[in-house]
């Protein structure tokens, strides 16, 4: 039976889709059969980030409505043999997500896949609720700033009260914190919240700290999950996070500013 993992945050623009792409690619590259689903019906970004937007014929909503079979809608990644993408519809809205429909699709996916990553839309409305309802584990993507932390706190409350596990009195959803867009230099200058400050408020285990990195935007634009970029610090941080998720004990990196010489500083500025 596969595990359902929701990538959620409450707030928009914090890196849920980037994280969904990186995490699913990371799990697949380690040999785990993984599917990543775009729950952001109507906006549809995941297929772009995954670089498969030109191969979408059927989508999640078609499968929910019974207009297509699951295997017709699943897109196999060209880079990783264990990775599949279930894109969403751009022409429909979140009302297309019915609880019964989502449950049916997830149940079918659980039989075929080890990990099912649900890329949640922002907010706490229907789309986000559907993405988290069936979750076994949740990765809370948070930026080191107060409004993002507040929204993450809110979504943790929703997970604890409105997920299936909460409603049916099962073991609670396992929560992990992923702090993204972390800029140690700005933290040192007091412009961003420290890891410890965020942990004090949210009080859930830390899965990873992803440094702010130009490679993330670049990776998005070329449709390659950043975890597949061997040169990228963010990619390294995501690989570590995937390792920790799978139970490895790895030291946290990228939490302190790198000491650069004048020459390197100059290079960075002009880059």
């Amino acid at each position: 039976m596969g595990k359902v993992i929701v990538m959620t945050s409450g707030k928009g623009g914090v890196g849920k889709t980037t994280t969904s792409a990186a995490f699913s690619a990371g799990l697949a590259s380690r040999g785990h059969k993984t599917v990543v689903i775009d729950f952001d019906v109507g906006l549809r970004n995941l297929d772009l980030i995954m670089g498969c937007e030109r191969r979408v014929v059927f989508d999640f909503v078609h499968v929910i409505n019974g207009d297509a079979r699951l295997n017709q809608a699943l897109i196999r990644d060209k880079r990783l043999e264990h990775l599949y993408i279930l894109p969403t519809s751009q022409t429909r809205d979140k009302d297309a997500l019915t609880r019964e429909g989502v449950e049916r699709v997830l149940t079918e996916l659980r039989e075929q896949f080890e990990y099912i990553i649900c890329d949640s839309p922002a907010g706490i409305e229907r789309g986000a609720l559907m993405a988290l309802y069936f979750a076994d584990e949740a990765i809370i993507v948070t930026n080191p700033e107060v409004s993002s932390v507040r929204d993450s706190d809110r979504i943790l409350g929703v997970l604890q009260s409105r997920s299936r596990r909460a409603e049916e009195g099962l073991d609670p959803v396992r929560e992990h914190l992923l702090l993204s867009r972390y800029d140690p230099e700005r933290v040192e200058r007091g412009e961003m919240m420290k890891v410890d400050d965020v942990l004090e408020i949210l009080a859930i285990p830390l899965l990873g700290v992803i440094p702010e990195s130009r490679s993330v935007l670049k990776a998005s634009n070329v449709g390659t999950p950043v975890i597949l970029d061997p040169q990228s610090a963010a990619g390294d941080a995501y690989r570590d996070a995937v390792g920790r998720f799978l139970g490895e004990s790895l030291p946290f990196r990228f939490m302190r500013p790198e000491r650069r010489g004048l020459f390197q500083r100059f290079l960075r500025r002009s880059a």
Partner: peptide
Amino acid sequence: TQAVRSGQ
């Protein structure tokens, strides 16, 4: 025993 989250 659990944290009371924003909105709860």
